[in-house]
Design a binder for these strands. Structure first.
Lengths: 344, 344
DNA sequence: GGTTTACATGAATACGATTGCATGCAAGAG
DNA sequence: CTCTTGCATGCAATCGTATTCATGTAAACC
């Protein structure tokens, strides 16, 4: 029923090969016939069948995107970066939510490969053996965004979580803090969980500060974790003077937990977050945070993928994007003892 | 190079038709041969080519989703609802960001149709003539989510924006407010902009309250609009005692704008928002808001689409989901004069 | 035991494009 | 004027599957 390339050919009085050529912008067509064909297309309301084209050409101009949860602001921003670059290169995106479940991630990968996507951008937590197994059976490129595989084989785009954890902690130390608590992510997460925590530990160690278990709360990136963390920290005899939470949501939870107990931020306690989602500017006090270029991670990952898909030369298959600390109102620092001495 | 159904057939010593049958779960296959085929598939690592299947069967088990901006929490939640139901029915989704630009929406629709999606879920602002034109050329069902077309022809899932606007305003009136300001969306938006505003006007009228231009600020759903609105309202001699913002982001902007000026919410001014995104619970005071079932709108829209795709009977092609007001701490009301009289 | 019935399977074709190869023709070279 | 060259076009194979139809076989029936 729908009009095919053959109908157009008949209408224009040419062969289907010629129609195909004008549709695909092949220069080897006489302007006059091109015009005829275009007219026929317009006339008949012809819409090329991309599935047939995909079968014949072995390219679908579609890429798969596997994401933990699109309703998370962090990943949504990443996804937007991916899609913007994708559409810039004329690709469409098949978006799949994995909820970070390994079997599902593997299953989705297979589904995407069946659908003959030209490439895949993968976002997840841990890269396991199961992942590597499917990934290596793929005949199309796969790049990791916001993750890195332990073997370093796969192309990936991410920040240095270790450095970021270190920098945030160092920032607080330099501000004069000595009792610094941390709200971590799930430590099963090797990067956003573990590596950031290791950065924290390193910074403490270098400053000669003790690592106290009671100053570490194991969160899950969500707001409620922040609230819960405050409970733990405030029950201590020696309460922290600064709290480093590895997601903005948790950081805001911390701030509100503190405020609900009558403490002021940053007057009583400093708080620093992580990510720099829009929320960070939509709290009072505005949140000092480690900014992670989420949009860019997505965009760069997609750009990298296009290079692989076009068999272009790539210099570095692992790219580490810079992070930085955006100083806002949730941190103001403490005077160190030396500074206090000077004042006297 | 990749292994095809033909290779499997040879390996299993059957015809490709039989392989196709077992792959598609056709019951007309002797268990013993099914087993042989399955073994061959496993052995060869066969992965069915969904593109070829799509061409032959004329179904892609893929649906298109056009969305203004996936990085907006509101739409992200909607998208999640869509994807969950889609994957429940074994569909994948092609996600496209339109930025609410009409030409782009039209263009994306055409692209999706070329890719032979089995259906489309469309989210946008206004449904114009251009939209209707493409939509009607489509041979697959299209359902609107979070919008409605003026002609009422297209299937859609949404709330009643008019009622919601009315209810929010009425809520404030019942709380004793007489000076109620509103931060609207762009009035070009016929629903989230205009209809909510009309509900507001109606509620005022019924209560015998005047509609004052200075009490209306034209926002764009973003946080900054809320801040700006406060500027306008506080410059008035007779300042409002309650503010109704048609997005939570704007409402939070309003709250912060007020707080930044030393006013307290709700002690000095009540604020009510709209949407009930997670942010609403991540502010102090927590935001009273009109809850819009975003996830459900997406889910129901997708469910409706599956019915159309399966040629099932549908009772109502336009479905209006319920909204309600979630009362939190940003509203506490004012005593009316009568109440004050009673106290004396 | 012959006829009907149901099931299991294979051969062949359609799906709607892309693309390599052959061909015809006109222009340019010698 | 002939030969070469290159452009414009058509022919036909191909992509990997679904699906109809015909066929063969075994079970079921009276």
């Amino acid at each position: 029923m729908p009009v095919t390339i053959y109908d157009v050919a008949r209408e224009a009085g040419v062969s289907m090969a010629t129609v195909s050529r004008v549709v695909n912008g092949n220069p080897n067509v006489k302007p006059s016939t091109r015009k005829k064909v275009l007219a026929a297309i317009e006339q008949l309301g012809y819409r090329p069948n991309a599935v047939a084209r995909g079968l014949a050409s072995k390219r679908t101009t579609t890429v798969g995107v596997i994401i933990p949860d699109i309703s998370s602001p962090f990943f949504a921003e990443l996804a937007r970066g991916i899609d913007d670059i994708a559409s810039m290169y004329k690709y469409n995106i098949i978006l799949c939510n994995s909820d970070e479940r390994v079997e599902r991630e593997v299953h989705l990968t297979n589904t995407l490969l069946e659908k003959q996507v030209d490439g895949i951008v993968f976002m997840g937590r841990e890269i396991t053996e199961s992942h590597m197994q499917v990934f290596t059976t793929a005949s199309v490129p796969i790049v990791l965004a916001g993750t890195k595989d332990p073997t370093g084989k796969l192309p990936s785009v991410d920040i240095s979580h270790y450095d970021a954890g270190y920098d945030a902690t160092k920032y607080l130390i330099d501000k004069g803090h000595r009792r610094i608590a941390m709200v971590t992510g799930p430590l099963i997460d090797p990067l956003a969980g573990m590596r950031r925590f290791e950065g924290y530990k390193q910074a403490l160690t270098e400053a000669g500060l003790p690592l106290k278990d009671s100053y570490v709360y194991n969160g899950n990136f969500r707001y409620e974790s922040g609230l819960a963390a405050v409970e733990q920290f405030l029950s201590l005899v020696e309460q922290p003077t600064a709290i480093f939470a590895v997601s903005d949501e948790m950081a805001v939870g911390v701030i509100h937990g503190l405020q609900d107990r009558g403490l002021r931020v940053p007057d009583d306690i400093d708080v620093i977050g992580f990510d720099n989602i829009r929320l960070a500017e939509m709290v009072r006090p505005r949140l000092t945070t480690v900014v992670q270029p989420m949009y860019d991670i997505g965009a760069v990952a997609m750009r990298l993928l296009t290079k692989y898909m076009n068999n272009e030369k790539v210099d570095h298959h692992i790219v580490i994007l810079p992070h930085r600390i955006e100083e806002r109102q949730s941190t103001k620092g403490r005077m160190t003892e030396e500074q206090q001495d000077e004042l006297e």
